[in-house]
Write a protein that binds this DNA or RNA. Sequence first.
DNA 1: TATAAACCTGACTAATTTAGTCAAGTATAT
DNA 2: ATATACTTGACTAAATTAGTCAGGTTTATA
Lengths: 141, 141
Amino acid sequence: MKLTSKGRYAVMALVDLAKFNSINPVSLRDISLRQGISLDYLEQIFSKLRKKEIVQSVRGIQGGYVLNKKAKEIKLTNIFDAVDEKVKTVQCKKESKKGCNGRSSKCLTHDLWDELENHINNFFEKKSLEDLIKDNFERRI
Amino acid sequence: MKLTSKGRYAVMALVDLAKFNSINPVSLRDISLRQGISLDYLEQIFSKLRKKEIVQSVRGIQGGYVLNKKAKEIKLTNIFDAVDEKVKTVQCKKESKKGCNGRSSKCLTHDLWDELENHINNFFEKKSLEDLIKDNFERRI
DNA sequence: TATAAACCTGACTAATTTAGTCAAGTATAT
DNA sequence: ATATACTTGACTAAATTAGTCAGGTTTATA
């Protein structure tokens, strides 16, 4: 089980954005330089974040991105959802429902994966961008 | 983030094994048939489980595998560890330690991934094979 | 109004990982 | 003896990931 770097980058970039979020939008070029993430890759990521209304774009010179909600209202779960980073534990859900009704011997562990998914998603739902910035700030004191 | 099928199969196979664990060892052939997992693949998996002393092998006719500990003492974390299924969240640990000392701007989210790993591993450490069998049994009542 | 900064999009690709298969054994109960 | 079942290592096809690349469009400002 691993987290993909698309998800990690999305979170890193948003923390960076939130930190530098003032009146002016933050350009991807700046985030790219500060975080060491390829500009082209960031563009892919922010395209998805924009579609999910997590950020807003400002075009033209001096343009960039701004948060579209308060940092407190942006949860990890929203970010991961936007970039298609999701917890996949069990196959049988999509496949033949006949094979897996929760009682078949094929799914001895079905409930376990459900429980695991819930456990992880619970973590993502509680954690907001604001929490991350706060943690980051407190560590520096 | 996804769980690989090697990890899933390992857990499924061990639940199966634990259920049919009597005086006689359980052959991989039987598990293969009951759980629909390729025999060759199961062999790879059980080779690893044996090396970590989770199961014991019995060779020859009427051979197979038996649990090497009580189901209560086998935690998910042991199983996943044996088959190299692990939670990987952040890269910077292995790489240049210079780049990531917890204060560099590259690791704005370092603590987050640590926290996530702990959260998930905590789940794995609590859950034993016995829990899984019990859940499975109770659901059938 | 020319221009450069910065967003926007889709197609492409190399590297890695996964999920097995295959082949050639060895050990042992009957 | 021999069939059953464990044991090991090498190999491979498919999928996924982590980007790159090329070609746009928009707009502030000089």
